[in-house]
Amino acid sequence: MADEPLKLYASVNEQGSQYKWGMVVDSDRCTGCQACVVACQAENNIPINDENRYVEHRQKEWIRIERYWEGEFPNVKARFLPVMCQHCNNAPCEPVCPVYAIYHSSDGLNVQVYNRCVGTRYCGNNCPYLVRFFNFWDPEWPEPLTAQLNPDVTVRTRGLIEKCTMCVHRIQRAKRESSKDGRKISDGDLSPACVQACPTNALVFGDWNDSNSRINQLAKDQRGYRILDNLGTEPAVVYLKRVDPNLAETKGGGH
């Protein structure tokens, strides 16, 4: 038993679901264009972040692009890292919720139940990836944009936490469509809004349980790593990044 790492949740296969959703992000392909960010804002009814929101650090971006400088001038490169909810199998946000507003679905998703959330923000404080966002205000859109809200996604009101769902409404839709034909969801049947928008295919979505899925093939790459893996959160998102030996190691943060 001593060799077994301590686990809060049974692994997804033990729960009997056929899927375990996840993503592979190839940061060598990412150009930092932010198409995924815009697609996510539009898909998930996220209000517009104006300058004040960023100054206050109260902006809501379910997926964001982090920029790092790699190397020292003049031999320097900008690296981009799209960061969304990692849907950890060992999620730090889940056990701290006093009202059980977060649960781990049998598909391996970390699901926020908005109508249970009372906004204690414990989960947001406990998330090492900073991907949980508190609604400090009721969302507002300028007039014509209210007509483009996605009816599949609820509009979150003031006082609750929200985060990336890996487009769970698209997953539910794909499940309905595939069950009509009595088959499993196959690789490539669906993609979240960010994956769909990515022009360089840096983001790939799929099922970890399907050994032939594209993400499983890509994750075999030796460039693969998980961000903040040392925390033991077991993220469902794998990043790929080539270590460039020609670049001198950056001194300091470089963020």
């Binding site: 649960y103 679905s105 699901v111 139940v113 109508n115 609820t154 769902t165 769970v168 409404h169 539910q172």
Partner: peptide, 8 residues
Amino acid sequence: TECATCHK
């Protein structure tokens, strides 16, 4: 009966 089935 999973939350995410109906709640969005």
